[in-house]
């Protein structure tokens, strides 16, 4: 099936199995390997991308779902001014440890700061509650997002 969509602000078309996972399309067809597979069942958030501006776990999204839509990965978000700001904040707090979950956290945090943006710890915790991190104990992640809310 022909699937046309916008990937990191570029129009693209692929011919693929409509049930193929968005995660595989991003990684295999476009070599954007920032999006990671941690569990393959929506339970960890390492594969989070934005679909029409909303964070989704790309391991549970099929090719057919993205036809005519916009997909943003961590690579795309890193080019946006707000993405750059977030990266600065994560860098400044030394929040990143192994980093495997962080592209996912970047995507979800970007969505939070962009759509809500209130410097509110409870809200931030809730917004990030679909992303699992095993290294950090999350506190430095909260600190980074709070910092981004303040600076944005």
């Amino acid at each position: 099936m022909k699937i046309s969509f916008k990937l990191n602000n570029k129009n693209v078309t692929i011919d693929t199995d409509p049930m193929r996972r968005l995660l595989d399309i991003i990684r295999e067809d476009f070599h954007l390997t920032g999006t990671k597979e941690g569990c393959g069942e929506g339970e960890c958030g390492a594969c989070t991308v934005l679909l029409d501006g909303k964070p989704v776990t790309s391991c549970l999204v099929n090719a057919v779902h993205i036809d005519g839509k916009e997909v943003m990965t961590s690579e795309g978000i890193a080019q946006e001014p707000l993405g750059k700001l977030l990266i600065d904040c994560f860098d400044e707090t030394n929040a990143v440890q192994c980093g495997f979950c962080f592209p996912g956290f970047l995507v979800t945090s970007y969505h939070y700061v962009k759509t809500d943006g209130e410097k509110n710890l409870d809200k931030i915790k809730k917004a990030l509650s679909g992303n699992i991190c095993r290294c950090t104990g999350y506190q430095k992640i909260f600190e980074s997002v709070m910092m981004a809310c303040e600076r944005n």
Binding site: G42, G45, T48, L51, K54, P55, V56, T57, L60, V61, T108, K126, A127, L128, S129, G130, N131
Partner: peptide, 9 residues
């Protein structure tokens, strides 16, 4: 419900 990431799908 599930998680914010799953709520969107």
């Amino acid at each position: 419900f599930a998680s914010p990431l799953l709520q969107t799908s």
